[in-house]
Design a protein around this nucleic acid. Structure first.
Length: 579
DNA sequence: GCCGTTTTCGGCCCGACTGTTTTCAGTCG
């Protein structure tokens, strides 16, 4: 059982307790613990193996949760979990996933009408039975039917950040055309640059002098966007819609004087906000989306800008990417937040494909495009021979490619193409070219494309063997995951990072929004262990240098500075790190 | 159930929107 599965169990227990109407703080404790475990950067199994008591050091985990997690990891289940699962029909949990249906309604449906699953719910709604329940009516019944319809139509998967960003930017362009919109920004997980996004939050500022009609007009404009499929809420200052793509977009309108406070509030994360409010409380302050208030006098500290919120609670500005509710507030207090890397720090890209393998562009065009975009170098890393589906290059072909690179390099001024390869890691951990080729390459990116289903031990051993190859320079897309399509390979990332440190191998953050691999927690772990990172596009088209921004997002969420990233170096300094 | 520069007991973020009520409970973020 991994952290994600443990987190799911904790979430499930919380959900069941909630349906049963247990004490809400006890319910919250399970949900908090679930989130805490999910974002915890270390494998809980390794903690249990060393000293189970250490589990209590994880925020939100006390003696009870520790015992539960211990049984889950040693027995694969626990008495408590079994007992609680038996206490309600399992289908009730699925009902919780419906929009507008929470624990109270699930309990109501079950206790009054013995409804135990979605099918039964649909029948009861169609038969008009739901409307007869206390607190329900025709409208609520229809809401349930619509929620059931949505549930079957859209898989409620979170979408890639690239998609959400595009949707948000288009919506913002449209909203800017509306009179009275002084400022507009997206907030939420999109602003925090999470790798996947559940819904988009838009925040609009209006001038305090604006009348109610102006705000109403903005709400109206919002609902009339051409992509809107359904308006699910529309109040005085808050609206929500569902787009044709299935994505939910929320809008909130605030006075421009409260814009900073509201932006902070709606950027989250929830955990970060709770910690900020806790800190404020201890200073006799109250923080909400309208500003920071002195509790005793009720005096308002106006927060037109976000940094005023932080200042009011005695903190330096914390960038959205860091707001996870982990240790960022502590580190900010002691002025230990790093200055994180920016897109403009990148001087080159060390993982790219041309039409020599499965890319679309010619090497020369790629080089020109990158140079025009302000970069100083690239490494051409086409696929090695075994990856025949991607037109991998034989030893002979790659040597021909070097001749072409030499020719182009002579023509270029102030720009360099490194000779590289994305060399496949074989099942036994050996590399897909022999020494004769490897030793002539400037950049050897080692990647596993085949055998993703090996056991954890075998996979870890295989990858480490490849890292130990003296010619390996960068470990490419380490986990092999494809977001919403394929999970990560089962391997011990902590050991792999240690091996990279021991062998002077950098680890890649692959900027393709479908990969974003290494993930942020491991990026931070690598940094803490002194391992260098390469932020690469893995581009298959000259214009895919534009993907690098997504890799930068991950790096910033992993607290990386420019110094932690090798492709912020000049071409001359870059070659020296492996000497 | 968790947690502690007010505390080992007594708190636990907080406000908007909706529908069904006629002052509020449930849901959501």
């Amino acid at each position: 059982m991994d952290n994600k599965q443990i987190s799911q169990v904790l979430q499930e227990i919380g959900d069941i307790l909630e349906i049963k109407g247990e004490n809400r703080f006890r319910v919250n404790a399970y949900h908090n613990a679930a989130r805490s475990v999910l974002s915890y950067p270390k494998d809980l199994r390794t903690i249990v193996d060393r000293n189970p008591k250490d589990l209590e050091k994880i925020p939100g985990i006390g003696v009870n949760m520790k015992n539960l997690i211990y049984s889950l990891l040693t027995d694969g289940t626990s008495l408590e979990l079994e007992r609680i699962r038996e206490s309600i029909p399992s289908g009730l949990l699925e009902m919780l996933r419906l929009r507008g249906v929470g624990p109270k309604k699930v309990k109501l449906f079950y206790s009054e009408l013995r409804i135990t699953d979605l099918k039964g719910l649909k029948k009861a709604a169609k038969d008009g039975m739901l409307a007869t329940l206390p607190g329900m009516g025709e409208k609520s019944q229809n809401e349930v039917l619509e929620a059931l319809d949505e549930h079957s139509k859209f898989d409620l998967e979170r979408v890639m950040i690239s998609e959400a960003l595009m949707e948000a930017e288009h919506y913002i362009e449209y909203m800017k055309k509306c009179k009275g919109v002084k400022k507009i920004e997206y907030a939420g997980s999109l602003r925090r640059r999470k790798e996947t996004i559940g819904d988009v939050d838009l925040l609009v500022a209006v001038s305090g002098k604006n009348s109610k009609e102006v705000v109403a007009n903005i709400m109206d404009h919002f609902a009339k966007y051409s992509e809107v499929l359904k308006v699910i809420a529309s109040g005085d200052t808050k609206s929500a819609v569902i787009l044709g793509s299935g994505m939910q977009v929320d809008l909130r309108v605030v006075d421009e004087d409260a814009f900073g406070a509201a932006l902070h509030y709606f950027t989250g994360s929830k955990e970060h906000n709770i910690k900020i409010r806790d800190l404020a409380k201890r200073k006799g302050l109250k923080v909400n989306e309208y500003g920071v208030f002195k509790v005793k006098t009720g005096e308002l500290i106006t927060c037109k800008e976000e940094k005023t919120v932080f200042k009011a609670v005695g903190l330096p500005y914390i960038i959205p990417e860091m707001r996870k509710g982990q240790d960022e507030i502590e580190k900010a207090k002691s002025k230990k937040l790093p200055k994180v890397v920016e897109l403009s720090d990148l001087k080159g890209d060390l993982h790219l494909h041309s039409d020599w393998s499965d890319g679309k562009s010619k090497i020369e065009d790629i080089a020109k495009t990158y140079q025009e975009a302000g970069f100083k170098y690239i490494a051409m890393t086409d696929h090695s021979s075994t990856v025949s589906v991607a037109n991998g290059m034989s030893s002979e072909r790659i040597q021909n490619q070097w001749k072409e690179i030499d020719k182009i390099n002579k023509k270029l001024k102030g720009f360099k193409i490194f000779k590289g390869s994305e060399v496949d890691i074989m099942k036994d951990g050996s590399l897909d070219y022999d020494e004769e080729i490897l030793k002539q390459l400037d950049i050897v990116v080692i990647s596993a494309h085949m055998h993703p289903r090996l056991s954890k031990e075998a996979q870890t051993k295989r990858i480490i063997a490849a890292i130990e190859n003296p010619y390996s320079k960068i470990l490419g897309h380490p986990s092999g995951r494809l977001i919403n399509k394929r999970g990560p390979m089962d391997m011990d990332m902590s050991k792999i990072i240690d091996a990279c440190k021991a062998n002077n191998v950098a680890i890649e953050i692959n900027s393709n929004p479908l990969r974003l691999d290494l993930i942020d927690v491991y990026a931070r772990m690598a940094k803490d262990k002194g391992v260098k990172i390469a932020i690469n596009s893995d581009g298959h088209d000259a214009n895919q240098y534009k993907l690098l921004k997504y890799g930068i997002f991950v790096a910033r969420r992993g607290w990386l500075t420019a110094k932690d990233v090798i492709n912020t170096l000049d071409a001359e300094h870059l070659s020296k790190i492996w000497e």
